[in-house]
Design a binder for these strands. Structure first.
Length: 813
RNA sequence: GCCGGAGUGGCGGAAUGGGCAGACGCGGCAGACUCAAAAUCUGCUGAGGGGCCGCCCUCGUGCCGGUUCGAGUCCGGCCUCCGGCACCA
């Protein structure tokens, strides 16, 4: 018997050997078909946690499998290195964000290497490196040129006590500052946006990608397209120039039910139309709304609030005059910032009307309605009533009819609205990509010329929170010369949202040090788009939507071909603590992967994560089960190195059939990322081989074929032990350069099947029969069964149902 | 509230173009090896009941109903948990 399985020794040994040999360097000039396998890069938080392992280890197995299937596989890794936690660490512990980040990268890179993954480290990308973010700035300029980057006034979270802008993550759920507990207010600042809404309709089209349906649905909901009509209401306030208020509605069929009008508090018409005697109350309400955080304001549980402006407007269709209110449930950034109040057919309007004693006028009769007052808004379809010329029309039809009428009269037009807003990319933060813009008193907003990039983030910055954006206090950074006129000018001091970094990192992997553009276009043509992307579902809307948008911009810039960056997507589940809760330091349920690797070895830990359950499910990490994987790998060790009693005369078929069935199932599972059942299949194969070993002489070539195939199928899952055993069995280095075993369908097909015999649908007997048994034979066999006959008794057989290879069901009585 | 996803033994989970429920593993029980323990190996392990105990019967996939010869799987109505969105006119 060979010596014992000792993961610590062999794992270090092979990791060193693989690195020395450049086994996982992906050549760009390889004749095999390319396959770009991408897994999301980690944020440089400090330690590689179990979630990273759960995301990456199965991805590695799948990438290795692709490689064994004859593809030239690119499987790169990098670090998402800009972001708030680095800055917070600096504020809290006085460590410079750069040092904090690079120290973390150093540690995490080491941890990643213990995984034994086939990452091509020569392509590593670190997003906080000027070599990388230079191209963030370059992209920004391209977008600015095309009008896709613009500056506008937008509200930001503002802490009046800290005198600083806060990121959304720094605002606690109760709307207070995470540092000082002061209620956060909103403050309007000039900020930069990317015009993602210009691509809204294209982003709604997921027909060219194979993504999990839930992610597609989430993106569609996020974009939130709705078709409706913009309609004018006549404004008849003396001394006001504006003669109309425009509203957006998806329910033009309810227009005769309008009993009031609501404007958003920020609506520009409000100060103009407010009656003198209402002015004080209106201003107070506006101030109140301004002080509220978005979270508070959008809370649906709250009772409706609002104030009457004293002004009226006229419904052009009905000719009725209705009062104009302001209320914070009307949102300035959606539609026109004005809502027509139809309490009978909109629950929000209904609640508002109840509160303010406004009339509820039914114009779409619910089926079977007796004319009595409504208890709540009726939002379904019905027959239009009390609606002028449209009375009697089904409301669904009325939508189009009213829209046409309104368009004919020139009172409005059909419009499409989106829930999605443009992407605000400005962050009043230090640790991010500087926005390449200069403000000049003479020339205004001036983009930094390309040849002056990168604008390097200065390191000698006072990033402690003193009430200003850190870069704004750095004289050497802020003060510059206008690129256009040369006169003194000021740099933009905001930095970019870090989602900018993840927009295109997968392009940078192709040529991480290329300096003529974001990536070598020739390599772009070769490798892009990504064939398979894996990562957490938490990125369903933000990252994955931004990256699709960005790709389409790149396509329009002529940088990439095709419409989508990630052809196939897979979301792994989330790994929980042993208590079934989210892992967190405060709960004390964090499982450190390093300890598990130390104890069991990487191969065992990797396989265990894959064996836990379906990859997309995730679930609690428990310590008991890992033992089972350890035992299994030991059994493989023993089987692979055993010297069986062999006999040329032994029948090779049983072993071969067993093996080829296993290969068939394993291949199918690999294709579908079903690692848990894949491992179960390999366990069964291992157990069968162990039994064959004990039972007697085996056919020598069938045995060798079976053991070699087992190791080949093990290789993507547990790369180190597979390599070690492959070598010990005298096979040529490396197991990872071999082909995935193929199966012979003839051998994989079972010769005998178990035929289930039922009487009236209840299981009564199992018969082992040849797979090619005829229907007639099967029925006769079933009827003749000793176990079946008593259940038929004297009752007549009415029907016999036969499912080939599966069952016979005898219907009696 | 709306939109997704999921509910199967003591536990993680298998099995869905309807057809053997519980593969594989953990845990548990019993045995072998051992002075003993660990490790390893073998057997049993959904619940209930009956036996002429190497056998049989009944029940059983969140709940209620339906379709079907047959439902974990399909349909209708609920319940619970998880995730996302949440006054989007």
């Amino acid at each position: 018997m060979a010596d014992r399985y000792s993961p610590r020794e062999i794992e270090r040994k092979w990791q060193e050997r693989w690195e020395r040999d450049g086994l996982y360097r992906t050549p760009d000039d390889d004749p095999r078909p390319k396959f770009y396998f991408l897994t999301m890069l980690p944020y440089t938080s400090g330690d590689l946690h179990i979630g990273h392992w759960y995301a990456m280890a199965p991805s590695d197995a799948a990438a290795r499998y692709r490689r064994m299937r004859g593809y030239n596989v690119l499987f790169p890794m990098g670090f998402d290195a800009f972001g708030l936690p680095a800055e917070n660490a600096a504020i809290k512990h006085g460590i410079h964000p750069k040092k904090w980040t690079y120290d973390n990268i150093e540690r995490m890179r080491g941890q990643l290497k213990t995984m034994g993954a086939m990452f091509d480290w020569s392509r590593e990308v670190i997003t906080c490196d000027p070599e990388y973010y230079k191209w963030n700035q370059w992209f920004f300029l391209k977008m600015y040129e095309r009008g896709l980057a613009y500056r506008a006034l937008a509200p930001a979270n503002w802490c009046p006590s800290c005198q600083t802008v806060l990121a959304n993550e720094q605002v606690l759920p109760d709307g207070t500052c995470e540092r000082c507990g002061t209620p956060v207010t909103r403050r309007d600042l000039e900020q930069w946006f990317f015009r993602i809404t210009a691509y809204a309709d294209e982003l709604l089209d997921h027909s060219k990608i194979q993504w999990p349906e839930p992610v597609v649905v989430m993106q569609k909901n996020w974009i939130g397209r709705s078709e409706g009509v913009e309609i004018a209401f006549a404004l008849e306030v003396p001394g006001v120039d504006e003669k109309e208020i425009r509203v957006f509605t998806t329910r033009p069929d309810t227009i005769y039910g309008v009993t009031f009008m609501v404007l958003a508090p920020e609506h520009p018409l409000v100060p103009k139309i407010t009656a003198p005697e209402r002015r004080r109350e209106v201003e107070e309400y506006i101030e109140l709304a301004r002080r509220e955080t978005e979270v508070q304001r959008l809370s649906t549980a709250r009772e409706k609030t609002g104030v009457f402006t004293g002004a009226y407007c006229r419904n052009l269709l009905s000719g009725e005059l209705v009062p104009i209110f302001i209320a914070d449930y009307a949102l300035m950034w959606y539609g026109t910032g004005a809502v027509m109040g139809v309490p009978a057919h909109d629950q929000r309007d209904f609640e508002f009307a109840q509160k303010f004693g406004l009339p509820v006028k039914v114009v779409v009769a619910p089926p079977g309605w007796d004319g009595s007052p409504l208890e709540e808004a009726y939002e379904g379809p019905g027959t239009m009533v009390d609606s002028g010329p449209f009375t009697g029309m089904p409301s669904e039809e009325g939508k189009g009819a009213v829209a046409r009428y309104v368009e004919e009269k020139g009172w409005g037009r059909r419009r499409v609205m989106y829930r999605m807003r443009d992407w605000l990319i400005s962050r009043q933060r230090y640790w991010g990509t500087p926005i390449p813009i200069v403000y000049c008193d003479e020339c205004g907003t001036v983009p930094v010329p390309e040849d002056q990039l990168p604008i390097v983030l200065p390191e000698d910055v006072d990033f402690r929170p003193t009430g200003e954006s850190p870069l704004a206090r750095h004289e050497g950074f802020v003060n510059t010369a206008c690129p256009r006129c040369g006169r003194p000018a000021r740099r933009e001091t905001d930095t970019m949202d870090t989602f900018m970094d993840s927009n295109w990192y997968f392009m940078r992997y192709l040529s991480p040090h290329y300096d003529q553009g974001p990536f070598d276009p020739e390599l772009g043509r070769k490798w892009l788009p990504v064939d398979q992307y894996t990562g957490g579902a938490e990125h369903a809307v933000m990252h994955l939507l931004y990256a699709r948008f960005f790709w389409k911009v790149c396509r329009d810039l002529g940088l990439v071909q095709g419409d989508e960056p990630f052809l196939r997507l897979f979301n792994q589940g989330q790994i929980l603590g042993p208590d079934g809760q989210r892992m967190s330091k405060s709960r004390g349920n964090v499982v450190a992967p390093d300890e598990q690797v130390e104890r069991w070895g990487t191969d065992t830990f990797r396989c265990y994560l894959m064996f836990l359950g379906p990859w997309e499910h995730g679930g609690p990490f428990t310590f008991q089960g890992i033992q089972g994987i350890w035992r299994w790998l030991n059994r493989i060790w023993n089987v692979a190195l055993a010297t069986p009693r062999t006999d040329e005369a032994a029948d090779p078929l049983p072993l071969r059939k067993l093996l080829h069935r296993a290969i068939q199932r394993a291949t199918d599972d690999m294709e579908k990322f079903r690692f848990n059942t894949l491992i179960a299949t390999l366990m069964e194969l291992t157990n069968s081989l162990t039994r064959a070993l004990q039972e007697g002489p085996v056919h020598p070539r069938a045995w060798e074929e079976a053991v070699d195939s087992l190791l080949l199928m093990l290789a993507p899952l547990a790369p180190h032990i597979a390599e070690e055993l492959w070598e010990r069995r005298g096979r040529p280095y490396s197991v990872h350069q071999q082909s995935w075993p193929s199966y012979d369908p003839e051998l994989a097909r079972p010769e005998e099947v178990t035929l289930v015999v039922q009487v009236n649908g209840r299981l009564r007997d199992r018969l082992t029969v040849p797979a090619d048994i005829s229907e007639e034979e099967a029925k006769q066999l079933a009827l003749g069964s000793e176990r079946v006959r008593p259940h038929i008794g004297e009752r007549p057989v009415r029907r016999i149902i036969y499912v080939p290879g599966k069952l016979v069901n005898i219907v009696v009585g």
